[in-house]
């Protein structure tokens, strides 16, 4: 699936919030066209890292590059779709008003806008709920609407922060199906998760713990190297190694 050219490059990135260090000397390359998962418990620094990649935050030291250009930059932001952990939606407005608003922010023209909205809403199975107020949406519907908004401007890189939290298994499967579909079209997907079985679905994984990237590889590589039969066990082995240091 991936053609082995990196589109994201994280170089020696550290981040401090006050005295607390939340990212420790991270080095990472994410390849064009892959689904890359960042796996780790909450507080591991996953969100901080993806926020830096989406231009919302900056490293204290080190640099992030997207398509060989340094982040943050407004040019690059246009090529990224970002879906935050919380559903950032306007509850007083209808789904259509929400999505039209964001479409305008990305500068989509009238006709293109209509067509894209229809496409992404069908992709997340919300096309028939377009005129409902978002306040009346269920949790799962809100997540899917957030995803649809992140897809609107057809980004080359999709950054998803815990996209399937609180979503029932059936829906999770359908959301993952849409990820695969996008991926097939060439979209690079970066996804954070703390759910182990979800990690198995990624092309490659980065394991994070206490602000450090403790291992990177395909799910199978990680399991083989540690002689484990699950990602969870592999994580424990890598985590244990880092504890001894």
């Amino acid at each position: 699936m991936s053609n082995l050219t990196p589109c994201v490059s994280v170089q020696n990135v550290s981040k401090y919030f006050g005295k607390q260090q939340v990212l420790k000397e991270i080095n990472l390359e994410i390849l064009r066209g892959e689904i890359f998962g960042l796996l780790g418990p909450s507080g591991a620094g996953k969100t901080t890292l993806v926020k830096e990649l989406s231009g919302l935050d900056q490293p204290t030291s080190g640099e992030n590059y997207l398509f060989n250009e340094k982040m943050p930059s407004l040019e690059l932001i246009n090529r990224i779709g970002y879906m935050a952990q919380s559903d950032a939606l306007y509850l007083e407005l209808s789904a259509k008003e929400n999505i039209e608003f964001f479409a305008s922010l990305y500068g989509l023209k009238r006709n293109k806008q209509k067509q894209r909205i229809q496409e992404v809403m069908e992709m997340v199975n919300l096309a028939e709920h377009l005129d409902k107020l978002v306040g009346d949406y269920s949790g799962g519907m809100k997540r899917r609407l957030s995803l649809a908004i992140a897809l609107l401007h057809d980004p080359e890189i999709l950054i998803l922060d815990e996209p399937t939290v609180g979503i029932d298994p059936l829906l999770r499967k359908s959301i993952w199906d849409s990820f695969y579909e996008l991926n097939k079209k060439g979209t690079t997907i970066i996804i954070t998760t703390h759910v182990m079985d979800e990690a198995e679905k990624c092309d490659r994984l980065g394991l994070m713990r206490d602000g450090s990237l403790i291992a990177v590889g395909t799910p199978n590589e990680l399991k083989e190297k540690t002689n484990s039969d699950t990602i969870e066990k592999a994580f424990l082995v890598y985590g244990g190694v880092s504890d001894e240091n």
Binding site: S54, L74, Y82, A84, Y90, L105, I149
Partner: peptide, 9 residues
């Protein structure tokens, strides 16, 4: 939503 706005151009 402010963060969401700032993740757009």
């Amino acid at each position: 939503t402010l963060e969401r706005l700032l993740s757009t151009p």
